[in-house]
Amino acid sequence: MRGLRCLGLIVLLLFAIATFTPLANLINIRMAGVPHVEPSDAIVVLGRGGADSDGVLTNRSLRRLLLGVGLYHDGFAPLLVLSGSAGEVHARTTLAHGFGIPEAAILTTARARTTKEEAEEIARLLLPLGQRRILLVADPIDMPRSLALMEHSGFVVRPVPTAATGPSNPESRLGLLRDLITELAAWTYYRLTGVL
């Protein structure tokens, strides 16, 4: 039973540290890396969280789209690539049009089921057009793996993470921790299967 008590103590300490200290935020900032915003061939906005049943984007998906739209209007790239589930892509495209982005400037892909497949689909869209330099919009936690996958697919990637500091209330920090653990598991899976 001593082993169980030790394990319980470790879990409790991890919970306390993750919830009541800014450690998760610091890790989030670290994973975001340094944004690298400069003129590129395309802005790639990866999917995240999809859309609700009423067609409204999730918070994270919307944040990414808004950042991508902002980059387009600031003139950093002539193309906006929107990826995600079918509902997410539809909602994003509708919003992008509403924000004044012409249809000719938007490319979409809704066939991917994983981040790896997203990278492959976007490569199929852009590489034949000679568009290799991309501004990659993703959450800080997703950025390292997404960046690695896009580079593996043949792109020159300039990362543009969404807000790096992240939320600071206990519940949201626990959510960040959960996302960190999920991302670590995904990294491990991709390394074990030879994808990265």
Binding site: M1, G3, L4, L7, G8, V11
Partner: peptide, 13 residues
């Protein structure tokens, strides 16, 4: 408190 920690450890497993 010790039994609580055991329960938490069991939950982790």
């Amino acid at each position: 408190l010790g039994e609580t920690l055991e329960c938490i450890g069991l939950a982790a497993i």
